[in-house]
């Protein structure tokens, strides 16, 4: 059973111990047939991950959370990335493709949402696992041995036999374990998990998340968990960053966040989640409207059309992400300071 680790619930990177330090990240995509026009999907994003830390990046569809995750490894060829992604003293934004390839998979690994499409259907599990190592010069025999060890570590029974199996012979949960094995086989410093359990049943979700947790605890690997599920955040992260319309709007330690989120969107989101441990007598308290279209974000604070606390200023001025006084959290809201606690049920 996992216990919450004691990591400083700090959001600043000033302490200099960050393993991954993202500063002012922006991601633009060219508009198809738009004659060089681009669309900014992620804006001015700061994010730090300390060694061994579990950070969750939360948001709804269109918030830019997945784009951010993919941008960290520059996986979208068409994306134009701005800002800095500092990792072990190097800026991933300026690295050549060749240098980046040496980091991908070995230093920073990634698990995607859909294990079905991540695995190549015509290669055996063993071949795919070993490939991660052989392309880096590990002899095939040794690679297969390590592949077997990786499966063993992930609790895949009869690992030796399973190496010869093909992806379609595995269940969804098993496939995600294989993907995890592929990710950790190179002993990465950071694991980026992009909605790793969204396609899975709830019991399998729990198993996979707990596996990630155990692996991280064993090897000191840091985890960046991309998810839309606040429940998952509560159970498997030390710190949380909430995204809305391409921006980070709140960042803090998990305990603080769930005790009392400060951004109106984060508050509304938390109230909207149905809870399995509670009956509702009244209707769920909700945020009106829908998340904005990234192509046409509202003026000023992108959340103002759905906010019940907006003032004149919210319509014109984009709120900056500021660290709150006496608190280890940052919020991007003009109205975050005065209100307190009224949301906690």
């Amino acid at each position: 059973m996992r216990t919450p680790r004691n990591t400083p619930a700090s959001d600043s990177s000033a302490d200099g111990e960050a393993l991954l330090d993202v500063r002012g990240l922006s991601v633009d995509f060219p508009v198809a047939g738009g004659r060089g026009r681009t669309l900014r999907i992620v804006r001015e994003l700061d994010l730090t991950v300390a060694p061994g830390e579990r950070v969750a990046l939360v948001g709804e569809s269109g918030s830019g959370k997945s784009v951010t995750a993919r941008a960290l490894l520059r996986l979208d060829r068409h994306a134009v990335i701005g800002g800095q992604i500092l990792f072990e003293g190097r800026d991933l934004v300026t690295l050549t493709e060749r240098e980046l390839r040496r980091i991908r998979g070995t230093r920073i690994a990634m698990v995607l949402q859909d294990p079905q499409t991540t695995l190549n259907p015509v290669l055996s599990i063993g071949d795919q696992l070993a490939e991660t190592l052989t392309i880096r010069g590990v002899p095939r025999k040794a690679a297969l041995v390590r592949a077997r060890e990786a499966l063993d570590r992930l609790g895949v029974a009869r690992a030796g036999e399973r190496l010869r199996a093909y992806p379609h012979e595995f269940s969804g949960g098993m496939r995600q374990r294989v993907c995890l094995a592929m990710a950790i086989i190179g002993d990465p410093a950071v694991l980026i998990a992009d909605e790793p359990t969204t396609a899975l049943d709830v019991r399998v979700q729990q198993q996979v998340l707990e596996l990630i947790d155990e692996l991280a605890a064993e090897s000191g690997m840091a985890v960046l968990l991309i998810t839309h599920d606040l429940g998952v955040v509560a159970g498997y992260a030390d710190r949380v960053a909430v995204m809305y319309a391409g921006r980070k709007i709140e960042g803090s330690g998990v305990e603080d966040f769930f005790a009392a989120p400060r951004h109106p969107y984060a508050q509304g989101l938390l109230r909207s989640v149905p809870r399995v441990d509670r009956d509702v007598s009244t209707d769920l308290d909700l945020i009106p409207g829908t998340p904005p279209n990234p192509a046409e974000p509202p003026s000023g604070c992108a959340f103002h059309p759905r906010c019940d606390r907006w003032v004149e200023r919210c319509l014109t001025e984009i709120p900056e992400l500021r660290v709150l006084q006496d608190e280890e959290r940052a919020v991007a809201c003009h109205r975050a300071l005065p209100e307190r606690e009224e949301v906690v049920a």
């Binding site: 995509f29 669309l39 999907i41 948001g59 269109g62 997945s66 784009v67 949402q113 969204t198 990234p294």
Partner: peptide, 9 residues
């Protein structure tokens, strides 16, 4: 999921 909706957009 996000990247899909974005690319469709």
């Amino acid at each position: 999921m996000t990247s899909m909706t974005t690319s469709a957009l």
